[in-house]
C-alpha cells in the first residue's frame, strides 16, 4: 500500500540537509507552506538556498527562516514588498545573496527542471541587465537568452486537498508555483488543509498527480465558510 501521508510537519521535513536547495511555493502568503517552514525552522538545517517568488512577508514563513540566519541565498523575482523588512535588512547589510530572476523565467526554469529539459531560449530579459553573461541567440529575427533548469533538493508546497497517493488539488490563486515546483525537486513535500480518502478526489480535477509528490501532511482547515466544507467538518 502506498501512503505518503505523514503525521505532522516535523516528520514531513525530516532529513533536509544543510546546504540544500529548497523550492517554496506561494505568491505572497497565498499558497505559502507556513507550517512546513515553521517545522524546518525547528529541524535546524542551515546554509540553505531558497527558491520562491518573494523573499518573505512579515515575520512568519520564509521571513522567519531568513531572520534565523538559515538561508545563504534567495532566488526569486520580487523580493521588495511593503512587508519584506527581514530580507531588505539582510540584503542591505550584505548578509544574503540574491539571484533575481524574472517571474516567467523562474516558472519556466522550474518547469524545465521537472520536465527533463536541458535548457531553453526565452525572449524575457533579452537586452536587459538580467541577460548579463548569458548566451544569446537570434531566432526568427527576435533576440533570446539561454536559461537553465532550476532543480530543488526539496520542494515545500501548499495545496488544498490530497489523498494518500499524493494527488493534489489547489484552491484559487494559492495554486501559483505549487504545480511546477512539485515536479522540480528530488523530494516534494505538500502541506494540505485536509487529506481525503483515495478515490474522493475527482481524477479530472487533480492538478498535481501523486507521482510528483513524496510526503503529505494535513495542517487543518483554514476556511471556516468554504463552500465544499460542511460546518461540522471544520476544525475551529
Amino acid at each position: 500500500m502506498i501512503s505518503k501521508v505523514v503525521s505532522d510537519p516535523d516528520d514531513a521535513v525530516s532529513g533536509i540537509e544543510d546546504g540544500s536547495t529548497i523550492l517554496m511555493s506561494g505568491f505572497g502568503m497565498a499558497g505559502h507552506p507556513v507550517a512546513l517552514i515553521d517545522a524546518l525552522l525547528d529541524q535546524g538545517a542551515g546554509d540553505l538556498t531558497v527558491v520562491s517568488n518573494n523573499a518573505g512577508n512579515g515575520d512568519t514563513g520564509l521571513a522567519a527562516l531568513l531572520k534565523a540566519g538559515r538561508v545563504r541565498k534567495v532566488i526569486c523575482s520580487f523580493p521588495r514588498q511593503s512587508d519584506s523588512w527581514v530580507f531588505d535588512g539582510l540584503y542591505r547589510s550584505g548578509e544574503i545573496e540574491l539571484e533575481l530572476v524574472p517571474q516567467g523565467n523562474l516558472a519556466e526554469r522550474l518547469r524545465a527542471a521537472g520536465a527533463g529539459i536541458g535548457a531553453f531560449y526565452t525572449p524575457t530579459g533579452y537586452g536587459t541587465s538580467v541577460a548579463a553573461g548569458k548566451e544569446t541567440r537570434t531566432i526568427g529575427g527576435r533576440g533570446y537568452i539561454l536559461e537553465y533548469p532550476l532543480h530543488g533538493d526539496y520542494a515545500l508546497i501548499g495545496a488544498f486537498r490530497a489523498d494518500r497517493w499524493g494527488n493534489l488539488v489547489y484552491r484559487k490563486t494559492a495554486r501559483n508555483f505549487g504545480p511546477v515546483m512539485a515536479t522540480a525537486a528530488r523530494i516534494t513535500v505538500a502541506q494540505v488543509d485536509r487529506v481525503v480518502g483515495l478515490g474522493e478526489l475527482d481524477p479530472e480535477t487533480v492538478v498535481t498527480p501523486g507521482i510528483f509528490v513524496d510526503r503529505v501532511v494535513a495542517t487543518g482547515e483554514r476556511h471556516r465558510l468554504h463552500d465544499d466544507v460542511a460546518p461540522a467538518e471544520v476544525a475551529v
Binding site: Q81, G104, T122, R175
Partner: peptide, 30 residues
C-alpha cells in the same frame, strides 16, 4: 486569502473565471 491579485490585494472571481499555475500564466504572456 487564497484569492489575491498581483499586488497581493484581495480580489474576486467572475463567472467564467479560470485558475492556472505560474508556468501557464507566464506562457499566456510570453
Amino acid at each position: 486569502p487564497d484569492l489575491i491579485n498581483a499586488g497581493k490585494l484581495p480580489v474576486t472571481e467572475l463567472p467564467g473565471a479560470a485558475y492556472f499555475h505560474h508556468a501557464d500564466s507566464f506562457g499566456m504572456m510570453r
